[in-house]
Simulated scan of single mutants.
Amino acid sequence: MYKKISCMGGLLGLTFALTLGTAHAQDYNLKLGHTGAPNHHFETISTQYADLVSERTNGHVKITTYPSDSLGKQTELVEGTMIGTNDMVLTSDAVLSNMVPEVGVINLPFLFRDSEHVRHVLDGKIGEELAERVKAQGAVVIGWWENGFRHVTNDKQPITRPDDLKGMKIRVPEGPVFVETFKALGANPTPIPFSELYSALQLGVVDGQENPPAHILTQKFYEVQDYVSRTGHIYLSSPVLINRTLFESMPAEYQQILLDTGREMAAKHTQLVLAQEDEQWREIAAMGMEIDDVDKGPFVEATRPVIDKYRQVFGDDLIDRIQSTP
C-alpha cells in the first residue's frame, strides 16, 4: 500500500510540474498597430522592441507590427486595446487623452524645454501617475515612446508670427488641447484622423497641418505643402499600450520583460528621433519646402491662456511639477 501511494504521489508531482512548465511556456502572439509609414521611426523602434521581447522570452512572446494604420485607425485601436478586442497599440497621447483626459497635460503648448526634460518627466513619477490613470481604463502603458516637437506646415504663406495663422484652417489631432492651442493662435483648428490627412491637404479641406519632420517627410506632405515653420509649439509622446487583462494573464516574468524593454526602448527612441531630424530637415528642404525659424516668444505669449485654462482641469500642482522638473 505504501508503494502504491508513493508511486501515485510521484505521478501527481510530475503532472503538476509538467502543467506548470506548459503554462509558463505558453506562446503569446500579439499584434501591435501604429500610424507611421513602413519607413517611419515608429516601425523601426517597434520592430526592435518586438525582436528584443522575443529574444528575452525565448520566443514565447512574439509581437507582429502593423504600420500605416493597417490594423485600424488610432482611436479604434486605443479603444480596442482598453476593452480587449486589440492587443497592443503605439498611439499618441493626443488620441489617448480622449479616453484618459489627464494625459492631455503632456500636450500643453510650450510646456517642455527640450527632449531631456520630456524624458525626466515621463520616465519619472509623473509618467507613473499618468500610467495609473490609463490602467484604470483597461490598458497598461508599456512605455512613453517618442514622437517629438511639432511644427506647422501650410500651402498659403510663410508663418513667422501668430498673426500669420489668423483664419487659416489647420488640421490638428483629435485632442482638445490642440484645438484650444490653435484657437488661441487665431487659426481654425480642424480635427482629422491622421490616415485622412494627406487627402485633406490635397483637396484643400485644410490649409495646413502640424507634425514633426519625420511625418512631413514619410507622409510626403511636401507634395501638397509649400511652407514649414519650426515652431516646436507642442510635444507629442507616443505611449505604447497593451490590454490590461491580456498583460495580467501572462507570467510575471514576461510582464516584467515587456515593461523593462518598453522603458529601455523609450530612451532609445528619443535618441533615434533626435539623430534623424537634422537629415530629415535637409531632405525636406531638398523637396522644395521653404523652412522658416520663428521667434517663439510671441507664440508662447499667445498660448499662455491655454495653460491658464487647463490649470483648472489638470491642477496647478501637476503643471507646476512638470515645469519645475530638472
Rank of each mutant, 00 (worst) to 15 (best):
M1I: 01
I5N: 14
F16P: 03
A17P: 02
A23G: 02
A25P: 08
Q26K: 07
D27K: 14
D27H: 09
Y28K: 03
Y28M: 00
L32M: 13
P38H: 10
F42Y: 13
T47H: 10
A50F: 04
E55D: 04
D69F: 14
S70N: 14
E79A: 06
G80F: 12
M82T: 08
G84T: 05
N86G: 02
S92M: 05
S92T: 13
L96K: 11
V100A: 04
L108Q: 10
F112D: 12
D114K: 10
S115V: 01
E116A: 13
R119G: 04
R119Q: 15
V121M: 11
D123Y: 06
K125Q: 15
I126F: 09
E129H: 07
Q137R: 12
Q137G: 05
A139L: 04
V140L: 05
V140I: 09
N147K: 08
H151S: 01
V152M: 09
I159H: 10
R161N: 09
E174D: 06
P176T: 05
V177H: 15
V179E: 15
E180M: 03
E180S: 05
A184Q: 10
L185I: 00
P193K: 08
P193D: 15
E196L: 10
L197I: 00
Y198N: 01
S199N: 13
Q202E: 14
L203T: 14
L203V: 07
G204D: 11
V206W: 11
Q209S: 06
H215I: 00
I216A: 12
K220C: 02
E223N: 08
V224Y: 13
S229N: 06
R230S: 01
G232A: 10
H233G: 03
L236S: 14
R244D: 04
T245D: 15
E248F: 02
M250L: 02
Q256C: 00
L259V: 01
G262K: 13
M265H: 08
A267G: 09
H269R: 10
T270Y: 11
A275E: 08
E279Y: 10
G288E: 07
D316C: 00
L318C: 06
R321E: 12
P326A: 14
